[in-house]
Design a protein around this nucleic acid. Structure first.
Length: 429
RNA sequence: GGAGGGGUGGCUGAGCGGUCGAAAGCGCUGGUCUUGAAAACCAGUGAAGGGCGACCUUCCCAGGGUUCGAAUCCCUGCCCCUCCGCCA
């Protein structure tokens, strides 16, 4: 949520900047709602004050033993007028709140203009793409014996996977490897969280109210959803709390499955496991002092990069243009890993600074020792990394041309010392 | 699932339907004292919204209701605790 005060003071400028993302900010509607709000608030507060004073007088009179009946009669229809005013105020507030919650974050000044991912800007590259003396195969072919997409389809439809044997183990090894890097080398606390959350929680991080179609809803009487990313439960740990300044920064790493309906992506990435309804991700979340969030974004990005470096996977770093930004992000940096079979870089991590946008929706604050007042924290998150996509990258970059894949050095100890994997038709080692 | 007990400020915890945004303690901030610190003592200290401001309004888990007036009474929901049952 954008700071309403800032919005009132700098309406046209902010509306224009939100517009650079391709979003529409209806200035006149906002102004109309604000006018109605002011009038309704004034009316309501005046009537409330009147009632309060009258009730106090009656209380005092009764205590003094006076006859209060005439005073009670004099209050008349105040209650009804107050209820009417309140109803209008509540309604305007609801509309204004809905309006505000539907406005995406303001892009940072440093975000390049652009409509979609074609206009993202490359910042740097690491390592050259590997050269093969054979035609590199894609992960579906390499892992054919151990990746059973037909079995998955029978269980749950398209965009799910069944992995067997050493492929499943490699997947698990990657997860453990990533968590260990972040806890042992980068100072994150590992945390385990629910994979099902209430509606409010998703409003807090910005997935709702606008993107309900992207989520899997749980049927039942409790209005819950499967999490689309660990960002949701982990960031919301601080909702409606006032943290001590000296507890910042909070740094969490969580491994969870992520569930996305991928509505609107029906024709995209249909081969293999690149885009799934269910996938594993190791997520980094930081909660920081507002003065620290830009430095923290660089740091968090470098933590995600460290995983790619440890696996010796070539990648590049791009900054998303305004039109490609996620709803809640003020700025996002993507890591794209090299996929030989596609002969291009593909997204494997997305690191964002949300400033106070999520904190405001969650009411997540810290007490500033300088002012002694609660202030909104800044939140950030990034994939460190998307496990399924890392699996693809390892298979494709480490393939040997004879149907086998050698295991990255860093992963050997997580694979029981195995240095070479073959995925035959039985899916065995 | 059954029976009981609870949800009050940053924390703990009082609170006969009226002067209660709410005692007290802890914590925090400032001061006195001290070479310095601790202790002691004194003072201050909830949050949100609105207004240029003096100031105003709201908030005692959430939502309804009763009442001139609700932290307090009633209803519903959510959550927590204790005991019993069941259970990976």
């Amino acid at each position: 949520m954008i700071d309403p005060r800032r919005l009132r003071q700098d309406l046209l400028n902010i509306a224009a900047r939100v517009g650079t993302r391709g979003a529409v900010f209806d200035v006149s509607r906002f102004e109309a709602l604000e006018d109605r709000r002011k009038a309704a608030q004034l009316e309501t507060e005046n009537l409330q004050q009147e009632r309060r004073r009258a009730s106090k007088r009656i209380g005092a009179a009764r205590a003094a033993g006076e006859d209060i009946a005439p005073m009670v009669a004099a209050v008349g229809d105040l209650g009804e007028r107050l209820n009417a005013a309140k109803a209008e105020f509540d309604e305007v507030r609801r509309e204004l709140d809905e309006f505000m919650r539907g406005i995406p974050n303001v892009p940072d000044e440093s975000v390049p203009p652009g409509a979609d991912d074609a206009e993202n800007v490359e910042l740097r590259r690491w390592r050259e793409p590997p050269r093969f003396n054979f035609e590199p195969r894609d992960h579906v072919d390499i892992a054919a014996g151990a990746l059973d997409l037909e079995a998955a389809a029978k269980l749950a439809g398209a965009r799910f996977s069944v992995m067997r044997g050493s492929l499943a183990r490699l997947h698990r090894a990657l997860t453990a490897f990533m968590i260990d890097i972040h806890t042992l080398e980068h100072g994150y606390e590992e945390i385990y969280v629910p994979y099902v959350v209430d509606r409010d929680i998703l409003v807090g991080t910005g997935q709702l109210p606008k993107f309900e179609d992207d989520l899997f809803a749980i049927s039942g009487d409790r209005d819950q959803f499967l999490i689309p990313t660990a960002e949701v439960p982990v960031t919301n740990l601080i909702r409606e709390r006032i943290l001590d300044a000296d507890t910042l920064p909070l740094k969490f790493v969580a491994h969870t499955p992520c569930f996305r309906s991928e509505a609107g992506n029906y024709g995209k990435d249909t081969r293999g496991i690149f885009r799934q309804h269910q996938f594993e991700k190791v997520e980094l979340v930081q909660v920081v002092h507002p003065a620290e969030s830009w430095r923290a974004l660089d740091e968090l990005t470098s933590h995600a990069e460290a995983v790619l470096k440890a696996l010796d996977l070539p990648y590049r770093v791009v900054v998303l243009c305004a039109g490609d930004l996620g709803f809640a992000a003020a700025k996002t940096v993507d890591l794209e890993v090299w996929l030989p079979a596609e002969n291009r870089y593909r997204e494997i991590s997305s690191c964002s600074n949300f400033l106070d946008f999520q904190a405001r929706r969650m009411l997540a604050r810290f007490r500033d020792p300088e002012t002694a007042r609660p202030e909104y924290v800044h939140t950030l998150n990034g994939s460190g990394l998307a496990v399924g996509r890392t699996l693809i990258a390892v298979l494709e970059n480490y393939q040997d041309g004879d149907g086998s894949v050698h295991v990255p050095d860093a992963l050997r100890s997580y694979m029981g010392g195995t240095s070479r994997l073959e995925f035959d038709a039985a899916g065995a080692e």
